[in-house]
Computed example of a mutant assay.
Amino acid sequence: MRSFLLLTALALCANTSSLFAADTKPHQTSATLMPAWQHAIKTQDLKVRRELAERITQLNTDAKRRDKLMREARHRAVLCKHCHGEDGNAVREGVPSLAGQNPIYLVDQFQRFGDGRRYDFFMGGLAKSFSQEDKIKLALYYSQQQMIPTGGGRSELMEQGKQLYHRFCVECHGADGRGESGYARLAGQRPEYIIKILKEFQNLSGRRGNPWMTARAKQLRTPQEIEAVASYLAHLE
């Protein structure tokens, strides 16, 4: 666990320029090209990112503090278990598993739910109720849980899904589907969840504002191609 936290801290410190990884194309986040409100959000998120890096460094050198944080996070996670499961493996359709998720990504998504950049009625209210401390604790807690791949989907589409994934998704989410720094882990997610979010990106539903992901999702031309990618990801570990 200590080595994992150290590597995460190094990634945070070395890659602050990719803050908007979840919602922009890499290397296109220059403040000079942003409206003032976007620049303000970026500045706020950079502060959170630095805080998370500092916290991980502290935890890496203080086992007692790390254990205390994990106990507190487990208690706070009671609010999440009815959808995301006690160990972060989702128990409802259309809900993502959080186990093994990139902690940078999780904190970023808490921020987005809280300020409206990502919309969900329940999650928006919950994110607003969490303090920054809560968000960091939960992100670290879930990142340490074991993701259990869901399987499912259509086995006959997996090869097609693999080809599509490596053509359109691998740059950000990695060859193993576990996500580069700041990007979501997709490996092992429920296929119906992947299908849902890809359709949301394609349809510009307003639930997730992400021009880069919308452009990529639109490269999947048919429902079968979307299902193929989802089927492939569901079996990655």
Score class of each variant (00 low, 15 high):
R49A: 15
E51N: 13
L52S: 09
E54S: 11
I56H: 11
I56Y: 11
T57F: 13
T57Y: 08
Q58K: 11
Q58S: 14
L59Q: 09
D62L: 07
D62Y: 08
K64P: 03
D67M: 11
D67N: 13
M70K: 11
M70V: 09
E72S: 11
R74N: 09
R76S: 12
A77Y: 15
C80S: 03
H82A: 12
A90I: 02
E93Q: 15
G94E: 07
P96H: 06
Q101H: 13
P103T: 08
I104P: 00
I104F: 13
Y105F: 13
Q109F: 03
R112Y: 10
R112K: 15
G116N: 02
R117G: 10
D120L: 04
G125F: 07
G125H: 11
S129P: 00
Q132F: 07
K135M: 14
K137E: 10
L138I: 12
L138F: 12
L140G: 10
Y141N: 06
Y141C: 07
P149Q: 06
P149S: 06
G151Y: 05
R154T: 04
R154N: 12
R154Q: 09
S155K: 07
L157V: 02
L157C: 00
E159N: 12
Q160K: 13
Q160G: 03
K162N: 07
Q163Y: 01
L164R: 03
Y165W: 06
R167K: 14
A175G: 13
A175D: 15
A175P: 00
G177N: 02
R178E: 13
R178M: 12
R178V: 07
G179C: 11
A184D: 03
A184E: 06
R185F: 04
L186S: 02
L186C: 05
L186F: 15
Q189V: 01
Y193Q: 05
